[in-house]
Each structure stands twice: as structure tokens, then as C-alpha cells.
Simulated assay, not measured.
Amino acid sequence: MYKRRKLAQDKIIVIPHDWEQRKLGDAINSLESGVSVNSGEEDTGYYILKTSAIELGHVDLTEVKSIVREEILRAKTPLKKGCILISRMNTPALVGASGLNTETRANVFLPDRLWQGAVASHFNQEWLISVLNTPRNIKQIQSLGTGTSGSMKNISKDSMLNVAFAVPSLEEQKAIGKFMEFLENTIALHH
């Protein structure tokens, strides 16, 4: 059995009857951002993650800048393994980009343009990041971007947490997440 859900602009999607509509705020415990700090050429051993590190479900931890010594104590939000990162401020094509941080790297902090959220225990993180990165959801999230500049858009925390999507049971999420991880690993091997 399937049920029909009406979306904005009179579009209808069909989802399995046992899936339910949920919001991102149900799946993420909280969204925290970092602060803006200055970076420099000297390697101080403390780094700020670049906004460009987030792309299509992944986080590239080589995309960092060294924090200048005078600002190291201002860095407040360390990068955490297992969290989802979301670009809250970026170009129209990249605003809302999200990735799952699967690694631990000491002394890497978030800038003010990125959010970090721990995935709630009743959601599978691999499934959630794959859902956020479907073409339909990317378009939905990008449409939340506001601002008068044509080159830079912002998404409010409330808007992001209200993004809705269909959610299967946790067991189905885990199975889908494992399949997506397998698929991505297979594709990576062939590139």
C-alpha cells in the first residue's frame, strides 16, 4: 500500500504507507555553528574548515585553513565525528550543501557559515545524509536561501529544521544507508 502526499506547487509524490512525513528537526538533535576567525599561512596546528569542504554528502577534511595564533582561543565549535554538516551561507548553488563527517581530526573547528548537527538515535546517519542529497531535497533546501545578493544566500535555522521528507522505519533506514554506502564505495573504486 502507498499513500499520496501533496507537495508545494501541486506536485504529488507516492510513498509507502508505513513511511511518515517528518522534519529535519526531528532527525537532528541541534544545529550549532562556529565563529568567523582569521586564517594565515603559518601552520599553527589549529584549523578552520572551509565552506568548500562540504559536497554531495561528504566532508573533505583536507579543506582547512590554519587559524592565526591570536584567534585560536576564539574558535569555539570543534568538528565532531558522526555529525552532519550543513552550509547555511554560500552561493545559490551551494547553500544548504550537506555532508556526513566520518573522521576524527584534532583541532579542526567550524566557521560561522557551517552548521553541525548530531543525528538523533532513531535515525540512521547514512540514510539521512543520502536523503538530504537527493536532487529533490537539494532543490527544496536551496529554495530556502534568502538574501539580496545574487552571489550569496543564507538559510535560517528554523527554515532548515522544518525541511520535511518521508521517513521509513529505522531498520529500513539502516538497510538503505548500507546500500548507499556500498554504492558510493563501488563508484569510488572505479574512479
Score class of each variant (00 low, 15 high):
residue 154 N to K: 04
residue 189 L to W: 10
residue 87 S to I: 02
residue 60 D to R: 01
residue 168 P to A: 08
residue 149 S to Q: 08
residue 43 D to S: 01
residue 124 N to L: 02
residue 94 L to P: 04
residue 146 T to E: 13
residue 141 I to N: 08
residue 10 D to C: 07
residue 181 E to P: 02
residue 169 S to H: 05
residue 2 Y to L: 07
residue 179 F to S: 13
residue 147 G to M: 08
residue 125 Q to N: 15
residue 148 T to H: 06
residue 49 L to R: 00
residue 101 N to R: 01
residue 48 I to D: 02
residue 116 Q to T: 02
residue 77 T to L: 06
residue 7 L to W: 15
residue 131 V to S: 10
residue 64 V to T: 11
residue 13 I to Q: 13
residue 49 L to Y: 08
residue 112 D to Y: 03
residue 37 V to Q: 02
residue 159 S to Y: 10
residue 67 I to Y: 06
residue 76 K to C: 10
residue 32 E to D: 10
residue 78 P to T: 03
residue 18 D to I: 02
residue 31 L to R: 06
residue 173 Q to G: 07
residue 65 K to I: 00
residue 163 V to Y: 07
residue 166 A to M: 06
residue 155 I to D: 08
residue 14 V to S: 13
residue 164 A to H: 05
residue 91 T to S: 15
residue 41 E to F: 14
residue 35 V to T: 14
residue 130 S to R: 04
residue 92 P to R: 01
residue 175 A to I: 12
residue 11 K to S: 07
residue 32 E to P: 00
residue 33 S to L: 00
residue 31 L to A: 09
residue 172 E to Q: 10
residue 68 V to M: 06
residue 26 D to S: 03
residue 182 F to R: 02
residue 102 T to Y: 00
residue 53 A to W: 00
residue 129 I to Q: 02
residue 133 N to W: 03
residue 175 A to F: 09
residue 61 L to Q: 07
